[in-house]
Amino acid sequence: MIEIDLDKVTIREFNQQLHDLNGTDKKEAYKIMNPRGKHSVAVGADAPVDITVEGHVGYYCGGMNKHANIDIKGNAGPGVAENIMSGCVRVQGNTSQYAGATGRGGMLVIEGDASSRCGISMKGVDIVVGGSVDNMSAFMGQAGNLVVCGNAGHALGDSLYEVKIYVQGEVKSLGADCVEKEMTEEHVAKLAELLEKAKINADPRKFRRYGSARKLYNFKIDNARLPE
């Protein structure tokens, strides 16, 4: 276990230490002390390391994460796990706006609530939220799964492509082209797998599923343009 005290080491120095391992299979374990809401904690990791953050972080914690497991014992500011590629980022508290935005793979687990635009433009990441999400979550989501054990705010799944959304509680309103869809046994099994992987305790049979009606402009074949 390598202890990093952010009162003594700068974010730049710590992130450089992480980047020095990039592309290797070194399984170092880090414990990050005194994050104090600082930005960009553990951004750009590309090795199967374990990072535990002892407190609240600011913007972009775990951004672009590849292979690493990051466990934040507190709240996370805007853009946590933005563009995550693989690995897992877990937030034990709440998150601010656009958690997991544009994420391409891996998993983001938020044990508390996420605010607006959770999973905006997600492209393959799986996001499991133990609490609720606010307005415009999964906006323009292209691939992956968004699981919400609590409630969802307004305009859920607006302009959605192929993201599957599972919500256990109330949805304030659905966004353009987002509709409720049938929850088949296949979906129940997939949701159970996601919940288990996220270590979030919930009954997959109590969820409803939402997805794209595929009626917007881009889904109409006549609007397709081939490059000239």
Partner: peptide
């Protein structure tokens, strides 16, 4: 941002939340 609250005495045990739109 939270870091401007973190410097207050007692912040570690404060109730913290993001105001709704």
């Amino acid at each position: 941002e939270f870091r401007a609250i973190e410097c207050l005495p007692g912040a570690e045990s404060a109730k913290i939340w993001e105001p709704e739109p």
